[in-house]
Simulated assay, not measured.
Amino acid sequence: MKTPYRVMIVDDSAVIRGFLSRWLNEEADIEVVASAVNGAVALKEFEKHRPEIVVLDIEMPEMDGMTALPKLIEMDRDVKVIMASTLTLRNADISMKALAKGAADYIPKPESTRQADDKEIFHRDLVAKIKALGETRRRKLGEQTPPPVQPTRKELPPVASASGGLYKGANVELRPFRSNGLLPKALAIGSSTGGPQALFSLFEKLKGKLASIPVFITQHMPATFTAILAEHLSKIAGIPCREAVDGEKVENGHIYLAPGDWHMTVVKDGTDLKISLNQNPPENFCRPAVDPMLRSLDTVFGSRLLTVILTGMGQDGQKGCEQLAKSGGYVIAQDEESSVVWGMPGAVATAGLSNAVLPLTSIPGAIENALTGRPS
């Protein structure tokens, strides 16, 4: 029998603590071992119960979530903290800062627990995040974990990576890359859980090196959060980044971020390329989703699209990468060790669709090599 993931809920609302505890305790592989009314109480409860995952409210009396966050991580560097907040610009900005300071993920609270759809989405997302983060923690620590959600292929021996080393991760077979000698004309990035932190790190190292191409990002996030993420990325990358606008012309040296609740695609309009947004049904339970972005970019750029799939839950991006593989595009997947959750990059890697599986710290160099034509 697998031991349940141990969770602590920290929120000043007794109502929220109550319904979260009921929801989570209904899951066979989740157990709420503690709850706290603020950060100060949370530190004491954490010491007693040692939860693996903490759902941490931002705004609380006596000690708020941002104050408690580094103290919790100091007590256990492997604890997975999910920041929970109401969907406001201020809280979205605080959540981004929390991710940069060590929080594993965030989740917006529903505006009303009486709205069935809002409750269902919040419930589903919170349970999925807890299980994914709990599994990642236990794998890292070598502890017993419930069976992984993703199907696995047979064990393969270490294989040569496109960067010249060996990727020793299980179930990974790299797709050989046949260069046509032409440089990439665009960069596409897909990410979810852990994505903001990964994007911050990526663009910090790529500052000043992306002026020659457009960059397209789909990060699973609600609308308020994508606006704040774009602001942060614009400062870090040193080139304009904003939520994409329907009908705007695509320009080199610009980063286009899919706005929350909208799929982002790119279409040809004569000699120009333009952004096209839509609210077609969610794909992989997500809107925005990576797959529709990749499908459209493959149609426009084909083999001259460079794609990076970063940390995230689920399999969004896999089908898009299947199309890219047929076109001969170059695909980099983040490796398991550096991913907060190895769902999206793992799905691409284990399906044999990636040309390289790299730690996050090596991906900026691989991107620069591809853009300059240097051998990698």
Rank of each mutant, 00 (worst) to 15 (best):
I73V: 15
S85D: 05
T193E: 05
S296M: 13
I94E: 08
V290Q: 10
S212H: 13
E27N: 10
T145L: 10
M96R: 00
P288W: 06
L324I: 02
M344S: 07
A92K: 03
F216E: 05
Y5M: 03
T299M: 15
L20D: 02
M63N: 09
R295P: 00
F200N: 06
I9R: 03
L133V: 14
I53N: 01
I275P: 03
L183T: 14
R50Y: 08
M63Q: 08
I213G: 03
I94S: 09
T145Q: 12
D118I: 00
R22K: 14
L182G: 00
P151A: 05
A227S: 08
A40V: 07
T224I: 14
L206H: 13
L87I: 04
T193L: 14
R50I: 04
W23E: 08
D29K: 00
R295I: 00
D291S: 15
G142M: 03
Q279C: 02
Q115M: 14
K209Y: 09
E248K: 13
I367P: 10
F225K: 00
A237L: 03
L277I: 04
R304S: 11
L233N: 05
L20C: 11
A160D: 10
E135C: 00
P282C: 11
I189R: 06
L294H: 02
Y167I: 14
V41W: 04
P146C: 08
E26V: 04
L133N: 06
P61W: 13
T3H: 05
D261S: 11
H220K: 09
T145E: 04
L206Y: 12
A92Y: 04
V33L: 01
P146E: 13
A162E: 12
Q219T: 13
E135P: 00
I9P: 01
S95M: 11
F285P: 00
E59C: 01
S13I: 01
E59F: 00
P147A: 14
R139V: 02
M313Q: 04
D12Q: 06
W23L: 12
V41P: 01
L72T: 06
I30F: 08
N38W: 07
L24A: 08
V32D: 00
D335A: 05
A116K: 10
Q219R: 09
L202G: 10
R50N: 13
T226S: 14
K44P: 01
Q315E: 13
L89Y: 04
P375H: 06
T265N: 15
K101W: 09
Q219F: 13
P61V: 08
A34M: 12
H49V: 06
S296Q: 10
E337M: 14
S303E: 15
A170Q: 12
R77G: 13
V215S: 10
E248L: 12
L358H: 09
L20S: 02
R22L: 13
P292H: 05
H220S: 11
S354A: 11
M264S: 08
E368S: 14
K48I: 11
M96V: 02
T224Q: 14
I213K: 08
N284F: 09
E62H: 10
P282A: 11
V267L: 06
F216P: 12
E155I: 14
V308Y: 07
G164C: 07
V308I: 09
D272I: 00
F46H: 13
G194T: 05
K71D: 01
P110A: 01
L306E: 03
A34T: 13
D291R: 07
L99G: 02
V32F: 08
R137A: 03
T224W: 04
V341N: 10
